[in-house]
Nucleic acid binder design. Structure first.
Length: 417
RNA sequence: CGGGGUGUAGCUCAGCUUGGCUAGAGCGCUUGGUUCGGGACCAAGAGGCCCCGAGUUCGAAUCUCGGCACCCCGACCA
């Protein structure tokens, strides 16, 4: 992609109402723009990051044996009445009416819909187990959206639901999902703790939250210094309490929730009549679990954990582009043609994943924008061309080195792999 | 939903306390020239329902009342 044609409006100054670093940089870098409080537009680069995160999530869900489907955002009221959540979810659910006055909720989560589907399509123990997921827009009427993508009224979520004949099998899948989540967050490159959690409105009695340590986080977690134990705490109580599994002191850490998994049991299957016939012909409720990841929130999470004062530092796995080429002397035909050649060669190596800054602006502007946008590997084509040289820069470390033009692609192919 | 703050040019903001002539700056944008590897310089321009509505007043960006929007703290949050 050429910067000259890309919609990536970078800002020198932060819009005043951005506090969290991820909010500021995503805005300044031209990744997102607000439409309304807690409602965001994803510009091309923001969408590219989102898609890369989705891809990792899909790969790991598929690897764990889950199947992707897509459920509606519009949920009829009657379905939610059956679980009693039309009332208990209350104002957190956006509600709309169709032209006949029939009421719908905009799905804040999909237990009702998926369980209803399973109740209609699954009848025998031979149809089970099933692991189904989707990546879809969710709506929650947050009383107070905040920090850009971190807490929105409309956001993208991966939600997966498991259906088993027994609690034992369901718990095995729960464990598989837990390790799948660990792989996902590792691949995306964000640090996290798996914390035992309160199941909350969703219900059930086994639950873990995946929390990334972050200043702007809304949760407080007690973390053990030595073992991997982590738990939720209220206020400052954490510091006073020793770790239950090894008796060492714990420290309290602020964090943000990235994912949440629940063992649901038969709470929804009973209410929505999701039952199967077992070997003996007895009707039994399906045993369920559900597993969510805040996909759009992960964009902010990556920025929160990887940035410096100049801008973002994307890991290769989710960077909007793997490589950015800066042409610093647009008025020199030999420089431009050298850059075009590098662009062609790198594009062959990383199709669609190379950004060429061919804008007719001063070099300083390109360097600053590049630091802001945070593409991991940078090739600077300019004054070295006469001697057949280019410069390679690594955004994360600030490392710079000169590389002969004829070895540049090979060099970068390794760095950006 | 409680508390606080902010709405003036595309962005960041000054002006408001103490009402007064064509409402300002920096950045960005357009045009011309000089520059050209870390956010250049000079010159000329374009760009405003001063959030909305009512009031007070000879006169309102400025004062009063009522709305709305956005941000921050808290409550809430699969």
């Amino acid at each position: 992609m050429r910067s000259s044609t890309l919609l990536a409006p970078t800002l020198k100054e932060s819009p005043k109402d951005a506090e969290a670093v991820s909010h500021r940089f995503l805005l300044r870098g031209g990744f997102v723009r607000p439409l309304s409080s807690g409602v965001y537009q994803f510009l091309p680069m923001g969408l590219r990051v989102l898609r890369k995160i989705e891809t990792i999530v899909r790969e790991e869900m598929d690897r764990a044996g889950a199947q992707e489907l897509l459920l509606p955002a519009l949920h009829p009221r009657e379905l939610w009445e059956r679980t009693g959540r039309w009332a208990t979810y209350g104002d957190d659910m956006m509600k709309v009416k169709d032209r006949t006055g029939r009421e719908f909720g905009l799905g804040p989560t999909h237990e009702e819909v998926i369980t209803n589907l399973v109740s209609q399509e699954i009848h025998s123990y031979q149809d089970l187990p099933k692991l189904l997921y989707q990546i879809q827009v969710k709506f929650r009427d947050e009383p107070r959206p905040r920090f850009g993508l971190l807490r929105c009224k409309e956001f993208l979520m991966k939600d997966c639901y498991s259906f088993h004949t027994s609690r034992e099998d369901a718990e095995k899948t729960y464990a598989v999902m837990k390790s799948s989540y660990e792989t996902i967050f590792s691949r995306i490159g964000i640090p996290f703790f798996a914390v035992k959690a309160d199941p909350g409105l969703i219900g059930g009695n086994l639950s873990h939250e995946f929390i990334m340590p972050a200043e702007s986080g809304e949760d407080v977690v007690a973390v053990c210094e030595t073992c991997s134990y982590a738990d939720h705490v209220e206020g400052e109580e954490a510091v006073a309490r020793p770790c239950p599994s090894c008796q060492r002191p714990m420290r309290s850490v602020r964090g943000m929730e990235l994912g949440h998994i629940f063992f649901l049991g038969t709470k929804y299957s009973e209410k929505l009549d999701a039952v199967y016939l077992d070997r003996d012909g007895a009707r039994r409720p399906v045993v369920m679990g559900c597993y969510g990841i805040g996909v759009s929130r992960l964009i902010s999470a990556v920025v929160e954990s990887r940035h410096d004062e100049l801008g973002m530092k994307w890991p290769v796995s989710v960077a909007p582009y793997r490589v950015q080429i800066l042409v610093t002397m647009m008025d020199k035909p030999d420089v431009v043609s050298a850059a075009e050649q590098v662009y062609r060669d790198l594009s062959a190596q990383f199709p669609g994943d190379v950004l060429l800054d061919d804008r007719d602006v001063r070099a300083g502007v390109k360097f600053h924008d590049a630091d802001l946008i945070g593409v991991p590997v940078r090739a600077v084509i300019g004054r070295g061309v006469a001697e057949g040289m280019a410069e390679v820069q690594i955004r994360a470390t600030g490392e710079k080195r000169n590389v002969p033009l004829n070895q540049l692609v090979k060099e970068i192919a390794t760095l950006a792999a």
